[in-house]
Computed example of a mutant assay.
Amino acid sequence: MSELLAFQDAFVAALGGDVDALSAWCAKDSSPVGLAVYRNTIAKGCVDALAENFPTVRALTSEEWFSGAALLFSRESPPSHAALQDYGADFPSWLTSFPPAAELPYLAGVAHLDRLWLEALFAAEAPHLEATALSGLSPETLASARLWPHPSLRFAAFDAGLPGLWLAARAGDEALELSEAPQAVMLVRRSGVVATRLMQDGEAEFLRAVRDGETLGQAAQRAAKTQPDAPLEILFAALIASGVFSGLDLEPHA
């Protein structure tokens, strides 16, 4: 290992608390006290990044609460690379075992939705399947076709109305209420903007089937079984209009 690489590794270790790691580069009987400046700068950067990446969690807690939690998380899970725009992948799961969050049992789910929004924003670019691509296809051809989910598509279902609470909090509503009814939410980026909306049960099951690689016909059957009164044609048209698919595979599969 080169001297530069050795120093860089030792410097990172020292920032993590192992000050003796830099002893080979320090004068005798001296201590690298200046590291505190770097640690404080990195810590503030992590807290600021988490505040930007999890705005709904921050909105539902106090500034002091969030900053304290973010600082503790950053110490346990420091960034793995310099870019912090997507920092905090483990923050939702970390909140599930964070004792002060026990009084806010919905907070980890809110963090999960904030994370899905961020993933949708930074997902790969891809075209959106338009309804015109389906014109002229026979019902049999459509039923055996497979849809490609758009790279930015994210969706999640919950046993309670957490998605509605999350959407209201992000919109800045002051009257927040957690419904007991199950809810599902969909996120997809189009023209650089992440769109979000609540979904019907049939829509959510249809998307699960598409994600599982099933045909359009099989996905429709699963949606109908989950929500017998679902207007499937309207449901499918709404998904197309939302831009949740990037293509259509007409090739037969064994």
Rank of each mutant, 00 (worst) to 15 (best):
L5H: 14
L5Q: 15
F7A: 02
Q8F: 02
Q8A: 09
D9G: 06
D9T: 13
A13N: 05
L15K: 02
G17L: 03
D18P: 01
D18T: 02
D20N: 12
A21N: 11
L22Q: 12
S23F: 00
A24Q: 12
C26D: 00
K28L: 06
S30Y: 11
S31V: 14
P32I: 10
G34P: 07
L35V: 10
V37A: 12
R39K: 04
I42G: 05
I42A: 12
A43G: 11
A43D: 10
D48I: 01
L50R: 00
L50T: 01
A51Q: 13
E52Y: 03
E52D: 14
N53I: 03
P55N: 11
L60N: 14
W65L: 03
F66A: 04
S67H: 12
G68E: 10
L71N: 10
R75W: 13
S77Y: 13
S77R: 14
P79E: 05
P79G: 07
H81M: 04
A83E: 11
Q85W: 06
D86I: 05
G88F: 07
A89Q: 15
F91N: 05
P92G: 05
P92T: 07
S93M: 12
L95P: 01
T96M: 06
F98W: 11
F98Q: 08
F98E: 05
F98K: 08
P99K: 07
P100C: 05
A101G: 07
A102W: 04
A102R: 12
P105N: 11
G109I: 01
G109F: 04
V110W: 00
H112S: 15
H112R: 15
D114L: 00
R115Q: 02
L118R: 15
A120C: 02
L121I: 09
A126T: 04
P127H: 06
H128P: 02
L129E: 02
G136K: 10
L137K: 06
S138M: 05
P139D: 13
P139Y: 09
S144L: 08
L147Q: 02
L147W: 10
P151S: 07
S152E: 10
R154V: 02
A160L: 06
G164S: 13
G164M: 03
W166S: 02
L167D: 09
R170Q: 03
A171N: 11
A171P: 06
G172W: 01
E174H: 13
L176Q: 11
L176P: 05
L178F: 05
S179V: 05
E180F: 04
E180D: 13
Q183S: 00
Q183G: 01
Q183I: 00
A184D: 04
R189E: 10
R190W: 03
V193M: 05
A195T: 13
T196E: 14
R197T: 07
R197W: 01
Q200Y: 11
A204Q: 14
A204W: 06
L207Y: 03
R208P: 00
V210Q: 12
G213R: 03
G213S: 10
L216H: 04
Q218S: 14
A219Y: 05
A220E: 13
Q221H: 08
Q221S: 14
K225P: 03
P228S: 09
P231M: 08
P231A: 07
L232G: 01
I234Y: 07
F236T: 08
A238H: 12
A241S: 15
S242M: 08
G243A: 08
V244G: 04
V244M: 02
V244L: 08
V244S: 07
S246I: 04
S246Q: 14
G247E: 15
G247V: 09
P252G: 09
P252C: 03
